[in-house]
């Protein structure tokens, strides 16, 4: 009964926060409400028995996305007055959302209640996957090709951002926040390490650990620590692509190892080595994700040749 009350309260709060975030007049208010929405969303995932999603939502949805929005707002400088929308302009999107919402609700009610055949299949093959947590097994063994491409999506988001990143804004940091961020750092490293290790047999894993590390690094970076953490540093670039590099190297090694078979199978880990390969990939993926997410939030125009030519062009155009 009390849990039912909790659920109802959670749903009501989620809806209220979402509406408030969309309708709020100031962008900074909208972002704060959105962060609160993300935290409650994480709770909701936990209530829906999806702790992996809850962790990811808390770290990325509530944490890093909020930080991303705030840094974007900070760089806007003086905001141009947002145009006021007329009554009709507001009405059409609302109508669209309502119609889609009811359509989807109608469809969701039609879905069969029993789970599909895949969860059973996953549990059946779990022993051969090298890890005992089904989510990690799906991500890094059964459907590892998706994960490889997802890592690439993250890297691409960074590459795209670096193309258009504005010049950095220098702001002084607050002494107290600087010392606090330094105190926080070791704690975050330990927590991220735990999350990474836990991923093998319980909720956790590279994405969550990476996001947590990134959150710590962003706090430090915003307090003017970690000055070496920039795209122009070749080692940073090296570790930003390390997750993918190790992944590809592991795939190729495993592929060559299985070459004795008649038809070598792409992306197949040898069962006895699977555990170590997955751990290796996870470690480097965590580092890569952490660095990529950090650079995304504090994106500064790199001084590498990546954008030098364009910068000159822009200056020429301005001058």
């Amino acid at each position: 009964m009390s849990l039912l009350l909790f659920d109802v309260l959670l749903c009501g709060l989620l809806l209220a926060l979402a509406l408030a975030s969309v309708l709020s007049r100031q962008l900074s208010h909208a972002v704060i409400l959105y962060i609160a929405f993300g935290l409650l969303m994480a709770l909701t995932w936990a209530r829906l028995a999806a702790p992996d999603l809850a962790l990811a939502e808390a770290a990325i949805g509530a944490g890093l996305t909020g930080a991303l929005c705030f840094t974007a707002l900070a760089r806007q400088g003086k905001l141009a007055a947002s145009p006021t929308l007329s009554w009709q302009q507001r009405c059409w999107p609302a109508l669209f959302v309502l119609v889609t919402l009811f359509g989807l609700l109608l469809l969701v009610l039609q879905l069969p209640a029993k789970p599909g055949p895949l969860p059973a299949l996953v549990m059946q093959q779990l022993a051969a996957s090298g890890v005992s947590h089904p989510v990690t097994a799906v991500l890094l063994n059964f459907r590892s090709w998706d994960t490889l491409l997802e890592l690439l999506v993250l890297l691409l988001a960074l590459l795209g951002t670096l193309q258009v990143a504005p010049a950095p804004v220098y702001q002084s940091s607050w002494v107290l926040s600087r010392s606090w961020s330094q105190l926080l750092a070791p704690l975050i490293i330990v927590l991220a390490g735990y999350l990474l290790w836990a991923g093998a047999h319980q909720p956790g894993g590279a994405f969550q650990a990476g996001a947590l590390l990134a959150a710590g690094a962003v706090v430090l970076k915003l307090n003017h620590q970690l000055n070496w953490l920039a795209w122009r540093n070749i080692w940073v670039r090296f570790f930003a692509i390390a997750g993918l590099t190790v992944f590809v190297a592991a795939v190729l090694t495993a592929w060559l190892l299985s070459g004795a078979l008649a038809e070598p199978v792409w992306l197949r880990w040898p069962p006895e080595l699977a555990k170590y390969i997955i751990l290796l990939i996870e470690i480097f993926a965590t580092l890569a994700i952490a660095i990529t997410l950090t650079l995304l939030v504090v994106a500064e125009q790199p001084a590498t040749p990546l954008s030098l030519a364009r910068q000159e062009d822009d200056e020429a155009a301005d001058g």
Binding site: R143, W145, D146, L156, G160, Q163, D313
Partner: peptide, 27 residues
């Protein structure tokens, strides 16, 4: 179907990053 979705995402991000190579006027 899901792998196709990931490929689509990848494709869209690459395409957008490529368009933004033109500098400010393309943003």
């Amino acid at each position: 179907l899901f792998n196709l979705y990931v490929c689509l995402e990848l494709l869209a991000l690459v395409a957008v990053a490529l368009v933004s190579l033109s500098g400010r006027k393309a943003i």
